[in-house]
Design a protein around this nucleic acid. Structure first.
Lengths: 64, 64
DNA sequence: ACATTTTGTCAACTATATTTTACATTTTGT
DNA sequence: ACAAAATGTAAAATATAGTTGACAAAATGT
């Protein structure tokens, strides 16, 4: 399932996938794959994404 | 750096590393490594640990 | 309409998380 | 003191996250 929360938070900061990738020091394809879903990123990368977007883990990656 | 939050939450549920590993369907060594630190688990595993311990990602894996 | 940026996707490669087996040390219970 | 359970740790193997390069499709701006 897609991660629309990351996509929305990124849009809210007016960043492209490439921008966010550079901030998090990963490839653009990795960010794309995370938003696309069916992916299992590392906690370090999740934290990097959260900090770049001024969100927390619960905001962007928690699921009930 | 050690993850004492996971260790404490696990103790709070009276579970051994092996117990928690079985619930999360990973090896005992993986749980041990996470508590020991210097490790970078996947978000899925972090979520499984949180649910097993009735905590959230921010509770156990967030860092300022 | 055109140029530019952004996004989606693929294949082959590299790095590293996780497993399995195994053993030593520490802790806990009686 | 003893036995059993729990923890720490290590090496070799496997699974998969993340990279790199490349190209097509879609979106955005002028």
């Amino acid at each position: 399932m897609k991660n629309l929360k990351v996509k929305a938070a990124r849009a809210g900061k007016d960043l492209s996938q490439d921008d966010l990738a550079k901030i998090c020091q990963v490839s653009r394809q990795t960010i794309n794959a995370i938003e696309k879903g069916d992916y299992n990123p590392s906690i370090k990368l999740c934290i990097a994404i959260c900090k770049a977007l001024d969100k927390t883990l619960d905001d962007l990656f928690w699921e009930e």
